[in-house]
Design a protein around this nucleic acid. Structure first.
Lengths: 164, 164
DNA sequence: TTTGAAATGTTATAGTATTTCGAAACATGG
DNA sequence: CCATGTTTCGAAATACTATAACATTTCAAA
């Protein structure tokens, strides 16, 4: 991932490696915080990272069930855990979950969601963050968390659309 | 409502009038667009405006049922209609709905949600809007809609908390 | 007054998330 | 190594949120 400038995932990127890195980061973060990165949690995180698209809890559940029994609470517990550690974000407008690329940095969620291909990328813009903070403060509001969800078309889908 | 600076709803504001104004605005907007402001739609909007807090669809349903039969689709249809006209916004992180103060202006949703008293106020910040637009554009993304949901404490709850 | 479109009624069902309680796995101190 | 308390997981039930599908009614324009 380039620094400073977000790029949508290119089709040629090595996704197996991408997943492996995410799992490695997760392992490290859990270790640092004395949390257990159990088999279920690892599997759920891995399933989420299969694509750069948000995935629903019940979709995760279905996948899990292909290798044994599982019930909704199993998935939701894992998702809660992963969210608490910043490894996964919930996309409110989709009721779905996506892996976080920068779990080591504390940040608020800023998401670009492509309505065509469903890919979801994260912005890490201090500028957006601070403008929101400023405006909220001006209204006498103390911010605990801010979520930004941006719907539209990613670069790739935009290009394809203009071809026609 | 003051211009330029958002104020959280003060407890002494004349809420009956507030509701009446919202209904009058709705009536006008419907008329302008050749849409029917039916009894159900009016009632649902009125229920939503009872408080400046987001209200769930099933809560609206319960209220509706106090004066006759009603089923979920009735409520969701009215909510869809009201959202299409900008009279109501959906707060994604709460699965709930809140009335819009500025339905005549096209705008994206920017919400301040108090986690203590649940009151929800809307920002109308061009600055937030344009910064998000700019950053998305820089990422090659074409924005169709943006949602900002800010969780924290409103002025009033903040003050009360500091008393203790 | 007919008629076609929009709105509503009704039943069923899909989709998302949590509660509750009990069993198992794990880390830690003795 | 065992006892013990804590965390994690299993399992069943249920709550909450939203939509599908089709019948019926309402309304306005021809």
């Amino acid at each position: 991932m380039k620094k400073g400038k977000l790029e949508f995932i290119s089709s040629e990127h090595d996704h197996q490696r991408c997943i492996a890195e995410a799992l490695a980061r997760a392992e490290e973060i859990c270790a640092n915080r004395g949390q257990r990165f159990t088999a279920i949690r690892r599997k759920v995180l891995e399933l989420i990272w299969q694509q750069h698209k948000p995935i629903g809890a019940y979709e995760v559940l279905e996948q899990l069930q292909r290798q044994g029994r599982a019930a909704p609470p199993t998935v939701y517990r894992a998702l809660d855990f992963l969210q608490d550690l910043g490894l996964v974000h919930r996309i409110e407008s989709l009721n779905a979950f996506v892996g976080c690329n920068q779990p080591h940095l504390p940040h608020e969620g800023q998401f670009l969601i492509c309505e065509s291909c469903r890919i979801c990328a994260e912005l890490y813009s201090d500028e957006i963050h601070s403008v929101i903070e400023k405006k909220a403060f001006a209204a006498g509001f103390k911010v605990r968390q801010q979520r930004v969800e941006i719907m539209g078309l990613c670069r790739k889908c935009l290009k394809e659309r203009s071809k026609k």
